[in-house]
Write a protein that binds this DNA or RNA. Structure first.
Length: 455
RNA sequence: GGCGGCGUGGCCGAGUGGCUUAGGCAAGGGCCUGCAAAGCCCUGUACAGCGGUUCGAUUCCGCUCGCCGCCUCCA
């Protein structure tokens, strides 16, 4: 079975689903106040791949991922643009899902919204107060981290050492600098909800506890997100769950950052590229391939060079598929290669080792070409079908490279070029190739005729 | 200051106590081609530095240097 690196353990552990054959996962989703950047794309792709792989392994997965639509930054933007927070939130949520669709990220089965859970958050905060693990501060209700014995587990640090490095501005009334806001009082005239303690807004760390427990129960298999969420966000979620005596998530999984040069890409550093910008010039599948070619916990450098390399690698995969199609091989009846499936499973089971898995698939691609060269069409079909199937399991669909319908002027030039070649007028032929090239099309001469593709 | 991680051939990027050079991209040579392209074959002898453990370390341990992340909002 699958083994994954569990942040709470600090090591790779065997993943044993709570209910055999089923898997429940909660992945922290975006705060919708701006466009999604490459880092969001990576986490979404990583957990999309995890989900798809679990499903490929035959598990019935329940994937929940939230939309955080209550946040100070949403309010700031709304005020700056003189519109309501909900308008801002719904705009960026819509854009989020349209970008995710381009990336081929499957929609989670449930998409809870924080605003729909404020009532439940208030109820949870009330219970935390009753338990004596929360207290009233000057500007809100705070969680008392000293009440959780192993606070700091996900940071792999003790409360003492966390305190030692705390950079957070001290508020005198807080018992510990690590204590965090559960409820923030606010002016009733601004964006706020009613609570027994007065109008206000919920702190960020409570919503995921309430939503995950509501939809997946007090005990579920996996909780995930970007590495930057491990502390304090996930730790604070865990602290609340501990205080409530929930069993909560069995495993905590985090993906590494997208780097810009040697710096983490983040909104606060302002060094981000939006996914939409990337996708204007890049096949979304190339970004998925780039993500797959590095391990999910490693930092990933995304720049024009690494993107170009992935694009190039992708187009070679596509052209191999095209070769198989051109050879007239019917892959629908092809058996899959068991040995390859097994190797794929082993790589993926080993902490989602997609670089090894894809490396193997590139070798398979080479094998398909060799078999085609040798005229072993049936074997080539089997290998190609396996390759397509396994890339498909990773959410990457391969397809042929030929344009379904060429513009008529392009078609006409191609025909004229063929005529020129048939009478060996290669000077004209080369001029026409140049013309096509200027129009953005590449032509390749093959035994079965010219192949035209967009460049 | 505390904690965690990283340093692999031109670049990206896996992995391992000794089998056999992961893989991708780029490069060089060859086959094929009117020329190209695609494809195939061949080529580069890498694991930061210094010690230690070991019959043997890129892989284990220690130290040094360099880099990064978290401890504040962040995927």
């Amino acid at each position: 079975m699958l083994r994954l690196f569990d942040t709470a353990v600090g090591d790779i552990v065997e993943i044993v689903p709570i209910a055999p054959g089923r898997f429940s996962m909660y992945v922290c989703g975006p705060t919708v106040y701006d466009l999604a950047h490459l880092g969001h794309g990576r986490y979404a792709l990583v957990f999309d791949v995890l989900r798809r792989y679990l499903e490929w392994r035959g598990l019935k997965v329940r994937h929940v991922s939230n939309i955080t639509d209550v946040d100070d930054k949403i309010l700031e933007r709304a005020e700056a643009e003189n519109r309501s927070p909900s308008e801002v939130a719904s705009e960026f949520e819509e854009k989020w899902f349209s970008t995710m669709a381009k990336l081929g990220v499957l929609k989670p089965h449930e998409i809870p919204h924080a605003t729909a859970y404020v009532g439940q958050m208030v109820a949870l905060i009330g219970r935390l107060l009753d338990e004596g693990v929360a207290y009233l501060g000057e500007d809100g209700i705070y969680f008392d981290v000293s009440k959780v014995g192993d606070y700091g587990l996900l940071a792999r640090q003790s409360l003492e050492s966390l305190k030692a490095g705390a950079r957070i501005a001290e508020k005198d009334f807080k018992k510990s600098p690590m204590d965090f806001a559960l409820w923030k009082f606010s002016d009733p005239s601004s964006w706020s909800w009613e609570s027994p303690w007065g109008p206000g807004r919920p702190g960020w760390h409570t919503e995921c506890v309430v939503m995950s427990v509501d939809l997946l129960g007090e005990e579920f298999d996996l909780h995930g997100g970007g590495l930057d969420l491990s502390f304090p966000h996930h730790e604070n979620e865990r602290a609340q769950a501990e205080a409530m005596h929930y069993k909560f998530s069995h495993h905590w999984v985090h993906n590494g950052f997208v780097m810009v040069g040697s710096e983490k890409m983040s909104k606060s550093l302002g060094n981000f590229t939006t996914l939409d910008e990337l996708l204007e010039t890049t096949d979304p599948r190339a970004y998925r391939l780039l993500v797959l070619q590095s391990h999910y916990r490693s930092p990933l450098d995304v720049n024009s060079q690494t993107v170009a390399e992935a694009s190039r690698a992708l187009s070679r995969l596509d052209s191999t598929c095209q070769r198989v199609l051109d050879a007239g091989v019917d892959m629908t009846s092809s058996q899959l290669d068991e040995e390859e499936l097994q190797a794929f499973r082993e790589a993926m089971d080993n902490d989602l080792d997609t670089p090894t898995a894809t490396g193997r698939l590139f070798e398979l691609r080479s094998k398909v070409n060799q078999l085609l060269d040798d005229g072993m069409l049936e074997e080539a079909g089997k290998a190609c079908a396996t390759m397509e199937h396994l890339f498909g399991a990773l959410g990457l669909t391969l397809h042929g490279t030929e344009e379904a319908e060429l513009p008529s002027n392009v078609k006409e030039i191609v025909e004229r070029r063929e005529e020129a070649r048939s009478v060996k007028d290669f000077a004209l032929s080369d001029r026409l190739r140049k013309e096509l090239s200027d129009l953005g099309f590449a032509v390749e001469d093959t035994p079965s005729g010219p192949k035209v593709k967009r460049r």
